[in-house]
Design a binder for these strands. Sequence first.
DNA 1: AAAGAAATTGTTATTCAATGTCAATAAGCC
DNA 2: GGCTTATTGACATTGAATAACAATTTCTTT
Lengths: 154, 154
Amino acid sequence: MDSKDQKRPSELQIFRDFLRRQGMRYTPERETIIKEIFSTHEHFDVDSLYIGIRQKGLRVSKASIYRLIPLLIKANLIEEVFFENGQMHYEHIYGHEHHCHLRCQECRKIEEFSDERIAQIEKELGERFNYKILRHRLEVIGICSECQKKMKSA
Amino acid sequence: MDSKDQKRPSELQIFRDFLRRQGMRYTPERETIIKEIFSTHEHFDVDSLYIGIRQKGLRVSKASIYRLIPLLIKANLIEEVFFENGQMHYEHIYGHEHHCHLRCQECRKIEEFSDERIAQIEKELGERFNYKILRHRLEVIGICSECQKKMKSA
DNA sequence: AAAGAAATTGTTATTCAATGTCAATAAGCC
DNA sequence: GGCTTATTGACATTGAATAACAATTTCTTT
C-alpha cells in the first residue's frame, strides 16, 4: 500500500507543508512535540505536554513548545479550548470533528458534544453582521451527577 | 416614589445584601469599583477599570480590584467573557439579558447577540449527560466587513 | 558532498497578570 | 465610643508566557 493512497495526510505531513510554505524548517524537536500532541485525544496545556515528552525519555525545552503552539494553531492543527487556572488549554482538531465542551465546575471533568444548530447560528450571524465566520467556541459549565451527589451529602 | 417600589434593586443593593450574607463589609473602595463597572456597558479588564477610576479622580489599589472580582462573580453581577492578550476580560450581567459574543479577529470589535436555541441545547445537554447546567459561553470569531475590505486591498 | 545563509534551539533573563503577606486602617456590632 | 475583625494599600512573590542571544542545525546552492 503506497502512502499516496491514504485519504488523509498525516498531521506531520500537513505541518511539513505548512512550514515549507512559510519558509520555515522541520526539526526533530517540532516532530517530538507534534507526535506527543497527537498521541492522545486529551486536552493539554504546555506543562502536561512537557511532562509527557520527558516521560517518554525525550527532551525538548518549554520554550520550543511555547514557540510551536502558535504555528500549530495557524496551521489549523490545534486550537485553544479554555483558559483555566492561569494556563491556556488546547486540543488537536485535525482529524476530529469539531466539538464543544461541557465542563463540570467541581471536578473539572469534560464531556464533548457537537450540535448542528451551532453551524446554523454561525451562518445566520455571518449574514446578519456581515462577518466572515471563522470558528466558534461553546463552553457549557455545570455540575456532573457525581458532584451533585457529593454536594447533597455535605 | 418610594425606593421600595422599584422593581429591580440596584447592583449596589444586591451586592450589599450579598456581602451581609457572607459577613463581609461594604467599603467605599468596593463602591467605587462597582460604580465604575456599571457606569458603562463596555467589556472591561482590570487595567481599563483601574484607569477609568483614576481618570475620575478617584483612587483604589489594583489589589482591591483583583480581590473584588471573584466576589462580584459569586454574586452573579459580572462574568468572565474571554481571555485575550494575557488578561481576562469581564462584563457585568446584572440587568442585562445574557448574550454571546461575535468578535472580529482583526480589529477586536465585539458584537453581541443572543439566541434561544442555546438554551434548548443546554437543556438537552443537561438531560443527556445528567448535569446541572449553570451557564454557557459562546464565542464566535470572524472577520468584520471593514476588515475584510482592508484585507482585500492589501 | 561541502559550504554558507538563515532559522531554530536551549539557556537565561525578563515581563506582567495575578496572588500572597502584613501592618495600618476602618466597618459594623455592641 | 470602643472593640473585633475584615479590608486596604504597599510591597513582595509566583508563575505563565515572551524576549535575547550565542551555539547549533536545517536546507539551499553550488
